[in-house]
């Protein structure tokens, strides 16, 4: 700087320089807007369509009122079945996910190829949605809730396995070193220093994915894999909107109850 400038002027000038839009900013913003417009065009999202759609959707929800409460008598069994599917889906997910998660955790498994294999398997299970797994298992073992539980188990096993591995990797390494120093074997160190530390995380994840499982299980019925989804699809296909309303309210009640229950349990485990 040649001439002495008052400090305020200097700061203001610096601010102005920061604010000035560079060419690449403008180009970036234009590209982003163009991309979004292209996406909107691809999915038929136009202001006029949207304006037309909203009243239509409102009308369909309006048709659901008043809910036809008598229908709930038919729904008890599929509603409970939904929860059973979620429960067993979680059990199967633990059975699949725990060993794979342990194998995928870098501080537990030393062998890099073994770790990579476990991770690849977890990724495969995770990336393919439970609905696609359900289609597959329905083809394999027939219609019903059983393939639904298997589908949830395989997909959630992949998700939980990865979360287990992360929980194990994030534990405090101090006690692990301390137990190794006593001469304890590798497996003993895992059992006595690693698992106790990661256990609360494991339980939290399982509770959360049980909630998610209930929500997912409500739609498995669409592909014939059991639960309340079958009734939901049927009422919608038959335009029995007042019955649909009852199904939706029941799902809402179910998920809310389980949400409350798991919050209650979670507060108790630490």
């Amino acid at each position: 700087m040649a001439a002495p400038v008052a400090p305020v002027d200097g700061v203001l000038a610096a601010l102005a320089a920061r604010k000035r839009w560079r060419l690449h900013h403008i180009a970036g913003a234009a590209a982003l807007i163009a991309f979004l417009l292209w996406c909107a065009d691809g999915v038929n999202l136009r202001p006029r369509e949207l304006a037309g759609a909203l009243p239509l959707i409102g009308e369909y929800f309006y048709r659901m009122a008043p809910p036809k409460w008598e229908f709930s008598e038919v729904l008890w069994k599929p509603a409970l079945e939904t929860i059973y599917i979620a429960l067993w889906g979680n059990v199967i997910a633990i059975v699949i996910g725990l060993p794979l998660g342990v194998l995928a955790a870098s501080n537990v498994t030393r062998s890099a190829p073994l770790r990579a294999a476990a991770k690849a398997l977890l990724n495969l299970q995770r990336s393919i949605s439970e609905m696609i797994w359900a289609v597959f298992f329905v083809a394999a073992v027939g219609l019903g809730p059983f393939p639904g539980a298997l589908a949830l188990g395989v997909n959630f096993g992949g998700i939980l396995g990865r979360l287990y591995a992360e929980a194990l990797e994030n534990i405090d390494p101090g006690p692990v070193e301390a137990l190794a120093a006593t001469g304890a074997s590798r497996l003993q160190v895992i059992l006595y220093a690693m698992f106790p530390q990661a256990l609360p995380q494991f339980v939290t994840y399982n509770l959360y994915w049980f909630e998610v499982g209930v929500r997912s299980a409500t739609v498995l019925g669409m592909v014939g894999a059991g639960g309340i989804g079958f009734e939901l699809v049927t009422t919608i296909r038959l335009f029995e909107w007042r019955e649909t309303g009852v199904v939706l309210l029941l799902i809402l009640a179910m998920v809310t109850l389980i949400d409350l229950a798991s919050t209650w349990i979670r507060a108790r485990i630490y």
């Binding site: 301390a178 006593t182 304890a184 006595y192």
Partner: peptide, 27 residues
């Protein structure tokens, strides 16, 4: 044959005091 004591204690926090001491017997 070598016991070790650490700056950060390195106890397994969620286990009981007795179980922590018992881990010294694991070997």
């Amino acid at each position: 044959q070598f016991g070790m004591v650490f700056q950060q204690f390195n106890l397994v926090k969620r286990l009981s005091v007795l179980t922590n001491v018992l881990t010294g017997r694991l070997a």
